[in-house]
Design a protein around this nucleic acid. Structure first.
Lengths: 234, 234
DNA sequence: CGTTTGCTTGAGCAATTTCAAATCCAGTGG
DNA sequence: CCACTGGATTTGAAATTGCTCAAGCAAACG
């Protein structure tokens, strides 16, 4: 549970903790515990009291919101260096979504009630946190704009390009999305069905834009995909 | 331009400035200027450098994002007491949307570069700001969930109920939304067309749920509207 | 008044979902 | 090594939702 000798360098480079003094960092680290999250494990679940917040050291999570009738939406993916589960920082008592590891992952965890103390100690941290949440708000608005104004194919294109930016890895055939993604996942990111995603991606495959197989997507021609995402489809 | 003798009580009750010392408040007020925004005037415009942030004293604004091809989305409505235009606080150089007064309004304005100084002076302000942005993020996610999983009628119902919560005013016939709202506005809040909104609302009118006319919406039976918004529509 | 802005409504149509059925593939356990 | 199992994917056909186009009407505004 408690952590001995966590290295400062672990979190020194995380954007949220940038520009903090060594002393403050040590203080922050002293309160942290390490959490191992095997593939499929949840860091926290929707509706449960928010007792901790986290920072992902490595691996990858997806954050999912579920409607009362069981439909799911992928809120976002958590990448190494991201903080997540900061519901309490926004004065929300419970987690609004579920965060699940999609590959074996490792995270730091702090008790939620430490948040205020951290902020009080370091105004820089406050500004960083605000920026982080602000960025997420931007992303959310972008998504609302897309859901409101774009047709499915372009939404899917945007979603795939976003995945490329977050986890793109150069390979022989093109840029691989470096974690398992199903058609269902992409459907939940774009507000459509796995059937439609499948049809769209099959068409792209025929046009030589992507290559995909089971839980695996490679973008062969990012530029043409980008054009497709942006052009008004004429 | 500069403001003389703004009363502390003006902003004392605004949630964002709660729990600040009188001295800090005076300091904050000293930097503020008052901005009159007649109906139709823009506080700021999308894409323009974010030189100021604001707090609405009274009136009502709508915040709109426009796509490259001219489609519009209502991001949110600004109500008295809300801060807005804090793009810079999230390290965004420009305003991501346009804020327009939909009734004659009055706001306080501060230079964007004051933000950091304010936060440094008062950690409480930082926490309040974080909460505010956090709330907006929640709202945005709620909207994404609705856009992704609900059909038009329920989305419109949710949007109208949200307006009721923000600006509902009891009248003879029911709860009036206390500022001008067009079908187009509601369409831009729900990702549909004014035609569809019109059809939906005409049907509601026939069922005795609402009464509406030009730029005016009265919810006659909030409870039944709520049921309609929540039920899976069976 | 004439013009503009907002609202309604019908008809046809296109995009997407639903429903249904196969097929594929990775891993599992004989 | 191979058949088996279950999740993932593909695909066709039918059903549906909501959009586009088009027209007419009504209230507000100068």
């Amino acid at each position: 549970m408690a952590v001995h000798r966590l290295d400062r360098s672990l979190i020194r480079n995380l954007s949220i903790f940038q520009y903090m003094s060594d002393a403050d960092l040590d203080n922050v680290l002293a309160m942290a515990s390490v959490r191992q999250l095997p593939d499929g494990a949840a860091a926290f679940m929707q509706g449960v009291e928010a007792t901790e917040f986290f920072c992902l050291l490595n691996g990858r999570l997806k954050v999912i919101q579920t409607t009362p009738d069981g439909q799911q939406v992928v809120v976002r993916h958590v990448n190494p260096g991201d903080i997540f589960g900061i519901a309490r920082a926004m004065r929300r008592p419970d987690y609004p979504a579920t965060a699940t590891a999609i590959v074996d992952s490792l995270a730091l965890a702090w008790p939620s009630n430490q948040w205020e103390a951290f902020i009080a100690r370091s105004p820089t941290l406050a500004l960083n946190a605000l920026q982080t949440v602000g960025q997420r708000l931007q992303d959310a608005h972008t998504r609302i704009l897309e859901l409101s104004t774009e047709e499915v194919e372009r939404r899917v294109a945007h979603a795939v390009l976003r995945l490329v930016r977050q986890a793109g890895k150069k390979t022989e055939e093109g840029i691989l999305i470096d974690f398992p993604v199903t058609r269902q996942d992409i459907a939940e990111m774009t507000g459509t069905t796995l059937h439609t995603v499948s049809r769209v991606m099959t068409a792209w495959e025929a046009k030589g834009l992507v290559q995909s197989s089971r839980k695996r997507v490679v973008v062969v021609d990012p530029h043409r995909l980008y054009l497709l995402a942006e052009s008004s489809g004429d």
